[in-house]
């Protein structure tokens, strides 16, 4: 993400960027459970039915040098339009068309979510579970951190 690009984003773009990331990263099962519990059935038109493809993932030489093409990753994208006219899109890693559709619908509804209700019911809990999973992995790794100690030898007084 280029810093120059980031700084020019509006508050609503930043919010949208954030929820699209959370919804894409959360395991599909969790997302569908949380989504189903909300019992939302918006009317919509498919602008781009869920479609599977590849994106070429770029990394940097030495981690911070020039970008290079590393390997492809499967990705599913989707776009819908609510009857109100709001466009919802999704770009999610993997090949789960249902997930892509759910994220696109959620994206459209979240744009109309002026009272932050859907944000609270959907994005906040899912983000918390992502954080919990990350914390658990970090705790596992932390257990394996080496605690160096030096053997004191007799020569020095």
């Amino acid at each position: 993400m280029s810093a120059a690009n980031q700084t020019t984003l509006t508050a609503s773009q930043l919010a949208r960027q954030h929820w699209l990331g959370v919804l894409a990263k959360v395991p599909a099962e969790q997302l569908q459970q949380q989504w189903a519990a909300l019992d939302l059935t918006p009317d919509y038109q498919l602008i781009r039915p869920p479609e599977i493809g590849l994106t070429m993932v770029r990394a940097r030489v030495g981690g911070s040098g020039q970008p290079f093409n590393m390997a492809e990753m499967t990705i599913t994208r989707c776009a819908i339009r609510l009857t109100s006219g709001t466009l919802g899109v999704s770009y999610v890693a993997g090949r789960d068309k249902r997930k892509a559709l759910t994220v696109a619908l959620a994206d459209a509804l979240l744009q109309e979510d002026t009272d932050q209700q859907l944000q609270q019911q959907l994005v906040v809990p899912l983000e918390a579970s992502l954080q919990a999973a990350a914390d658990a992995r970090a705790a596992d790794a932390s257990q394996t951190k080496v605690d160096f100690f030096t053997l004191v030898r007799g020569e020095d007084e």
Binding site: G63, N69, A134
Partner: peptide, 22 residues
Amino acid sequence: RTTLPRFGYSEALDTEAMQIER
């Protein structure tokens, strides 16, 4: 992979921000 369309290129990864496991 040859049967799938290409949806563009990712932004260059920021491996400095890697969530470390080793």
